[in-house]
Write a protein that binds this DNA or RNA. Sequence first.
DNA 1: CTGTTAGCGCTTTCAG
DNA 2: CTGAAAGCGCTAACAG
Lengths: 347, 347
Amino acid sequence: MSEKRRLTLKDIAKELGISVSTASRALNSYPGIAEETINMVKDFAEKHNYVPNTMAVNFRKNKTMTLGIIVPELIHYFFSSVISGAIQTAKKHGYSVFVSQTDEKVSDEVIACRTLLSSGVDGLLISISNETIEGEHIREFLDEGKPVVQFDKVSDYLETPKVIVDDFQGAFKAVEHLIKQGYKNIAHIGGWADVKNSMERKRGYEAALDRYGFKIDKSYLFQCKDISEQEGYDFTKKLMELPNPPDAIFCITDIVAMGAIKYLKKKKMAIPEHIGIVGFSNWQLAGLVSPGLSSVDQHAYQMGVKAVEIMINILKGNAVCKDEAHLLETELVVRESSSLGKYSNLE
Amino acid sequence: MSEKRRLTLKDIAKELGISVSTASRALNSYPGIAEETINMVKDFAEKHNYVPNTMAVNFRKNKTMTLGIIVPELIHYFFSSVISGAIQTAKKHGYSVFVSQTDEKVSDEVIACRTLLSSGVDGLLISISNETIEGEHIREFLDEGKPVVQFDKVSDYLETPKVIVDDFQGAFKAVEHLIKQGYKNIAHIGGWADVKNSMERKRGYEAALDRYGFKIDKSYLFQCKDISEQEGYDFTKKLMELPNPPDAIFCITDIVAMGAIKYLKKKKMAIPEHIGIVGFSNWQLAGLVSPGLSSVDQHAYQMGVKAVEIMINILKGNAVCKDEAHLLETELVVRESSSLGKYSNLE
DNA sequence: CTGTTAGCGCTTTCAG
DNA sequence: CTGAAAGCGCTAACAG
């Protein structure tokens, strides 16, 4: 821990017999500086591996070249993928990323916002918690002139760019696929009625049925409360005990689908022959379990990329921080759990 | 985006008719400041919601109250759990965390280190990439007097505190459990011979067999190259085609175990009756698949907590950044895949 | 207990 | 093309 003092601009200037400002300008390749001087300074800096004091630069420029990102739960595959894309993209533009998580609690979200704000990030990327409604704490960024980009779970009260999954389209594709596979009675285990993503998926489900001339059977609809495997199990049980049980289930998310599959296996119902299953999210596990779980991929990594690109554009002044939605395409990944006969696209 | 100027200490001082330094001292509750003054300043600050300019403070104090954390892959459940624990703990002590990833490439690791160093983090938490050997780029932190704490995948060339999983113990427990369940011929699908974690797990496997008087059969040992499901599948096939196939397999990691299970299911071999399986890592999926996969939990979250605690202690001056290993206990989570008869601890 | 002063390292006017 | 000088907001001697 030998605290040896770092080389400063002043040192370079003195050593080279020039002024501090010239040294600064040379290093940053300002226009109107002799080629010669630039080389001299850069060479010297290189040789003595000068590294500018970022804190001083930040302070002076009132910019930190850092972004904050807040997610409900870092350990969710979806969010860690988004973050991964965000970090990668930010890095490409010279930005670093602070990561915070809220555990779906608005109180933690408020703290995270304050911390990030006071630590001087240049912009905020956020996916709000389930508890967040208006997001006044997020507005503080906008009040300070710092751009905010929302992604995945967004608040419509905040006028910011939003990057969201086209849940409607994803659900539509999933159900359309089931229909084309020949399934006739398609149920849906959905999520909270007041969460936008859930609503959109339900709408997509209904639209697909409608489009292909099926009518919607209320008894085929269930709503999860905490989107758990257990609920998938329980609701599937209820579905299968109906007088006219479904022959396919579109689940709000893969974990619910896993619960459904668990029940069906226990009851020795063949998947996909007796009953087809499609999930949503395309977790890693979807490809690992057997039968492989068909699922709607949300391109999470791409979402992180997109959100940061929007942010950078605003920061660079090429765009303005205004209320606009960017819909991300989904992709249906078909695996065994919904592949009937000849339509199968498996190895 | 109304760039309204923030309140500064100078503003407060002028408004209150005191000096800037008094204002500063009052806000930071220095000893030797009139109670009265403190209250006056704090009240004023509160009312006009003064928030100190962190960049200026950082610059002045030459501290940022931030930590950097570098992992090979953010999307791995293990690492995102570690990070989660690290962020939580850092927050508790007033620190924020920058997250970087290397994709297992030493070149990316070098860049990440430089970026973090120049962005002025107070300390570095790192799990090195597979390619990293000596880690000269990491040493740069130490050279600047900034503490480094390594975790999970560590380099012995660097003299820093290390938080690691007790792989030996974990493997030992796993194999001991299989033995106690009554399995007699236990195989091991392991990892690279030159990766420490893999070696330790293999040692644990061998030690357990030895301890219970089984002898080690070389034909029961396989080494994965990229630790994939496919390899689990392939090696299990080879194992089962032996003249004397094993009746249990201890897999280096859950994903390999999933491959093993896939093969066994395809061959209609009953798990755990015909063959028992134990994995390592205890991924989320281990509890979701059927049969549930027995697995060694590494307490990843706890690892993040521990690493940050060590870091904070060094930063506070309560400890010094020296070479010492902190072994984290593992925990065997028993599920269906290895639960024979009466020993079963399942619902 | 409080004010004065200096300065952290850098960028950026304003003059040459 | 380059130098001198000011100053970002805050803290920490040093004096009262």
